[in-house]
Amino acid sequence: MKKKVLSLILAALTMLAFTGCAAKPAAETAPQKTDGEKIRIALVLPATVDDMAWGQSMVEGLKAVQKSMGEDKVEVAISEKLGNAVDAGAAIRQYATQGYEIIFAHGSQYQSVLNDIAKDFPKTTFAYGTGFATQPNIFAYDPQAQEGGYLLGILAAKMTKSGVVGIVGPVESGDAVKYNYGVQQGVAKGKADVQTRIAYTGSFNDIVGAGNLAKTQMSAGADIITGSSQQAVGAVRAIGETKGNYWLSTDMDQSSIAPDHVLASQVYHWEKVVNKIIDLRKQGTLGGQHLTLTLADGTIEFKYNEKLADKVPAEVKAAVETAKQEIISGKLKVELPKK
């Protein structure tokens, strides 16, 4: 009797398992039938889709494109945690083989790997950044991080009480160098005797290290801190535990991590960049262009944290706004480090 019951249960379970299997592929293949003029976009990320920084800002850009063009018109595939360029290369090649038309390799470290792969897939469009070197089918995108950095620097200089602005940097390269240089110039412009102190963790994703470096910055006197890359969330959190210190975020609005401590943000809007690449491809341009993100074209936004907006005096806001308009009109050009 017991055996019978057991075999019945087993049979039922097997059936369940089979129906489960059968249902799944049907659901997965269904949307592909509507394939008309669908654009297939792949994204390779060094960290995660929800890193509250570099990676997530791009994911949100792609989602916005998908939403505006229609879910059935744009397919987006994402591979994350591919900080190692060799592993990323394998994923990029696979996407190209599967017929994805536009492949974003979202990091400056992917440049050489893309150069290798792009030759084998001349009809596929590749894009990477931060960078400027292109190939006939490779776009390079390049946020002018120094522009927002400059504005945040002015804000920092005018808001600091200790006279020290701290930067928790990842690795001295690419986006971070430009951003930090912008902040430095902004601080110098904002108030002459305020110091900017730059320190690096030597990693992009060591959030514990970034948190510790932020603590060291604060203990040595900095009361306004900023820094780029995905590890920055660790620093934001460390500042969120203190009183009277502020964080300025870049890449994304990070105020949700520490609503009472994130004063303002430089936000990248990738949607326009993605749209531009799609349009260029439709017109037959597969690559070869260096696409910048700037305050002027709206791909970079300077944004206050609404919750703390009343903490920033009107004259400070005015100074930031003036600089912003000067950058947009081209009257002011934020310098880049000479190397």
Partner: peptide, 11 residues
């Protein structure tokens, strides 16, 4: 330390 979690937190 971090009071949060992120992938590869041990680094």
């Amino acid at each position: 330390q971090a009071n949060m979690y992120a992938d590869n937190i041990t680094a």
